[in-house]
Design a protein around this nucleic acid. Structure first.
Lengths: 229, 229
DNA sequence: CCTTGTGAAGATATTCACAGCA
DNA sequence: TGCTGTGAATATCTTCACAAGG
């Protein structure tokens, strides 16, 4: 979570909030391109991506001046620029640890291999699962973790294990050289500086929704009169 | 994403950033409770939850003054207060649409039913899947969506379908009365005001990691000399 | 004492509104 | 004329640092 605020050198220091939105813009741009759209205005792109157009323009302005006043943005060119900025012009070997329901769902997820990411290994510690093929990959034993990471130069690890083993898997990944981790296990991982962790947590999302749902429900309760203090 | 900034009435208007962290605190508190810990300081809890202690105190202060100076927080009491604030003292019937790999992974996810959430229905449009049992539930046909939502008073819908069907599933859920949606499909859903959408997107997370990984990789490249402008 | 709860400062993020350019 | 790019205003979030209180 602690990213250097701005780069030391004179060039870009893209805000974290912007980085988090670039993938959404990229997906939207791909959809437009498939649609045959050659040029798009910030307003159109913003609507399609579900954001405010001023925000979109400011976000894109961090990458450079790629628009044309009075016209808009060239879709193909923008796809390229955003991809490059995100580091998707190279490909990233990914290791998935845990071949349970979730690991299998991830391995089968099409959008995975599509752009930039490649599953370099799918590992599990359960002997009954090791050797089975999922999405064209043979599941390997967790003992192979270090070997797989080193051989394929994996720098992104996906943890899809039960909560109990997540931290130790994480430690092993980091020790083997992985510096980016996507964690699906419901635990707070602790990692050394320089390692990035992002988490995806179903129950947290549901709880946030429940909070707002509760709010909405209480709106239809007894009306609350607001009186100036 | 557009939540009323502060509540009109005099009481709480909990910041969105705080709401997003409460589930993490709650989980951490449960772990402490199972551990037999009766009391915890903001510093200890903060470390366990992976946040700064001042932030944690400020977050908790939005719920009320539940700590004791010089001592800390009573774990059980805080569990109760946070749960109540999140709306977890009631239970929330959830419908999962899509019984593919992901839908199955979600249905089998234990932490689901554990606290506050209950799967009221698991639906799919594929006749080959309808009728099979997953995690003790019979998969129902998508045609039953409206019936299931109404009969079980579902207010939270989970979309685990392919991207192509996500928007239409969303529309039907909303029409049937669902006001909170957790979307796993890689599309921007459009919904009327008053409906909450949260998204979980593997490829977005990977792309954000790739961005930072690229940064790190370029650090070890040719050194960049910073010269005062 | 020790730890909470919180003003005030600082950092980020969003939005407005318009100058500037094709 | 129409749309980008961006200063300036605003809103939100984080962190510091300390007064208040058990």
């Amino acid at each position: 979570m602690s990213h250097r605020p701005v780069s030391a050198n004179g060039s870009h220091g893209i805000p974290e909030a912007t980085v988090a939105r670039l993938p959404v813009y990229l997906r939207t741009l791909y959809a437009l391109a498939e649609n045959g759209t050659a040029t798009v205005s910030s307003e159109e792109l913003a609507v399609a991506a579900g954001v405010n157009s001023a925000k979109l323009r400011k976000d894109l302005s961090h990458l450079g001046s790629y628009g044309t006043r009075g016209v808009g943005y060239d879709v193909e060119y923008l796809v390229y620029q955003v991809s490059r900025e995100l580091g998707l012009t190279q490909d990233w070997p990914v290791a998935i640890i845990g071949a349970g329901n979730l690991g299998r769902a991830l391995a089968n997820y099409g959008g995975f291999a599509s752009r930039g990411f490649r599953i370099a290994g799918l590992l599990d510690s359960d002997a009954a699962v090791v050797g089975t093929r999922i999405a064209g990959l043979a599941v390997q034993h967790s003992d192979e973790m270090e070997t797989v990471v080193r051989r394929h130069r994996v720098s992104i690890g996906v943890i899809a294990t039960p909560a109990g083993s997540a931290q130790s898997v994480c430690d092993r990944l980091v020790a083997a050289g992985v510096t980016s981790i996507l964690n699906f296990a419901p635990v707070v991982l602790s990692v050394p500086d320089g390692v990035d962790v992002r988490k995806v947590d179903l129950s947290i999302e549901l709880q946030i929704l429940a909070f707002h749902a509760q709010r909405k429900a209480s709106m239809s309760g007894p009306a609350v009169q607001v009186v100036g203090s």
